[in-house]
Design a protein around this nucleic acid. Structure first.
Lengths: 192, 192
DNA sequence: CTATAACTATACCGATCTGTCTGGTAAAGT
DNA sequence: ACTTTACCAGACAGATCGGTATAGTTATAG
């Protein structure tokens, strides 16, 4: 009876290794044996804790999703003006491009690497929902859905530019666009 | 001595099969044997025409690049107002999402699937340059580089939304944003 | 007529992949 | 004391991967 809450260190070590390896090297390029060796864990422990590689990938993505939420909340300053708060979201991305610690959106990458996996796609869609919710909170909660979509699109754009173009300047341009959008929302608010 | 210009049908059949299979199923999920069988070609013919799978991938991407250019030129109406011309670029993407004939940007996909390949990344960067050039032509040739970047970013965003979100509405929102940008460029032009 | 080049067909190679199985150890619960 | 549970170590299986080698066919050009 694998009680998830009492889950011992093997599972957590596996997830820690999987997170790093999948993220930095890609999913298909990272074999099970490598994950197991890196985690210092027996192969059987992997299959005792996860149904298979795909389940491990999904668990990794769920951790990434939690991590993203924690991260954006940590770097958010609720006291700052909203345009700056949105811009900060993009600035953090720009910095991680410059420090070469950005390997692309884990969810987009996973969907591309495992296009047939419905469960992977499901997590990716949950991520997109969470991003939208966060952005809606940063802009006005009651902002038009289209405005939220526009900012979310810019966030997508920034990530793609960061991954393929490796260009922090493009990320900052996207951030500036998002900032302007929020400013426009704010002015409209005032004039109401 | 393999004279590329006199290259017989085996090479073209291989490229045709590779294009379809890589695009629809992904690169890593498509084995050499499948490409060879689909093309109705001997395995040796593949290795007579290409140094290896990576070279085949690069050739496929180069064909996709040519195809993209031909395609956007074909659907462009030079007589139409510039904002509409830019919007048409996005509309074509939206339609291909709706008809389920869109499998994501071949270049982004390839970079994610083969992150270690310098030659793949090189083609992807050439693609990005070509896109920028086309957009610069659609907007004003002398438009500020930032404006071109902004529209190109929106095109990235539309493609990601199409791939992961599978959402034609998002693609059209990105198109509307791009259209508005070009309209702003046009007004600035007039007031000069 | 013959030599060369492009092609087909298929067997084969070593490496690597996911996943299973065996066997042994250590600690915790009853 | 005994059983269960979680773990480690590693051999093993079966499939598939990219790539090579062998052998025979077709067509063309000197």
């Amino acid at each position: 009876m694998t009680t998830p809450t009492t889950a011992p260190s093997a599972r957590r070590r596996l997830l820690a290794s999987a997170s790093r390896l999948f993220h930095e090297r890609g999913i298909n390029a990272t074999g099970i044996d490598l994950v197991v060796r890196d985690a210092g864990v027996a192969k059987a422990s992997l299959y005792n804790n996860f149904a298979g590689k795909e389940a491990l990938v999904v668990a990794y993505l769920e951790e990434e999703l939690d991590g993203w939420v924690r991260n954006v909340r940590a770097l958010d300053d609720p006291g700052a003006p909203r345009p700056q708060r949105v811009e900060a979201l993009f600035e953090a991305l720009a910095v991680s491009v410059e420090t070469h610690t950005f390997y692309g959106c884990p969810f987009t990458n996973a969907v591309i690497e495992l296009p047939e996996s419905a469960s992977v796609r499901a997590v990716a869609e949950r991520y997109r929902t969470v991003v939208r919710a966060h952005i809606a909170g940063l802009a006005r909660a009651d902002a038009a859905a289209t405005s939220v979509s526009r900012i979310a699109l810019l966030y997508d754009a920034a990530i793609t530019a960061a991954k393929v173009g490796r260009d922090a300047a493009l990320v900052r341009i996207a951030g500036a666009m998002a900032k302007e959008l929020v400013q426009a929302i704010e002015s409209a608010e005032v004039n109401r």
